[in-house]
């Protein structure tokens, strides 16, 4: 057997083999309504008929009770930062300048927080309990995508009391 070094060549230890994947995603009824809401600058969620918890984005069924969430609920544009981190690490495909705030935001009237970007405040000023509001893209840029929400920013209201959101952590 001829080994690579005997021919004076380095062995090929590693090679780059890029892959590219495009997904086609079937939104389903509940998420389709949520996406249409985003294109109108509104957050549309759904309430579970059994436990009465409000999910936004809605999943079409309640993860706890396993029943369809049929009642549509329009949520507020405002919410509370339940917890957050300051991202200071670069990664391939990153679209936001670091450091940035990745927060869990509980919209008023919702029972589950979702992830959102906080801007218009210094990273070291963000707090658990801080009150925030959605900043939407201009009306002509609204579309059925989460990108319709440009980011969240502080409302300037007093912080929410820890007791009021601790069960959402």
């Amino acid at each position: 057997m001829t080994d690579a070094t005997s021919t004076g060549q380095e062995p090929v230890a590693i090679m780059e083999s890029p892959i590219h994947v495009d997904y086609r995603f079937t939104a389903g009824l509940a998420q389709s309504r949520f996406l249409k809401g985003l294109s109108q600058g509104r957050f549309l969620g759904q309430r579970c008929p059994r436990c009465h918890k409000v999910y936004v984005p809605p999943r079409g069924s309640c993860p706890t009770d396993g029943v369809p969430t049929t009642d549509e609920v329009e949520l507020s544009n405002q919410g509370t930062v339940t917890t957050y981190c300051v991202v200071n690490v670069p990664f391939q495909g990153q679209s936001i300048e670091i450091p940035y705030i990745c927060a869990q935001i509980l919209l008023d009237g919702a029972n589950l927080a979702f992830m959102g970007l906080i801007q218009e405040i210094a990273a070291d000023q963000v707090r658990m309990g801080m009150r925030v509001e959605a900043v939407w893209v201009p009306p002509e840029e609204l579309g059925p995508t989460m990108a319709s929400v440009r980011h969240f920013r502080p409302t300037g209201e007093p912080d929410a009391d820890y007791e009021s959101f601790k069960e959402y952590l």
Binding site: F25, T82, V89, F91, Q94, M146, L169
Partner: peptide, 28 residues
């Protein structure tokens, strides 16, 4: 890091790997 940060239809592309997911939970 990339594989855990792929944009999803219903969330902003903020995750920045597993650390971005677990750090807020640690803060809590």
């Amino acid at each position: 890091m990339w594989a855990l940060s792929v944009p999803q239809p219903f969330s902003a592309p903020l995750l920045a790997g597993a650390g971005g997911y677990f750090a807020p939970i640690i803060r809590a």
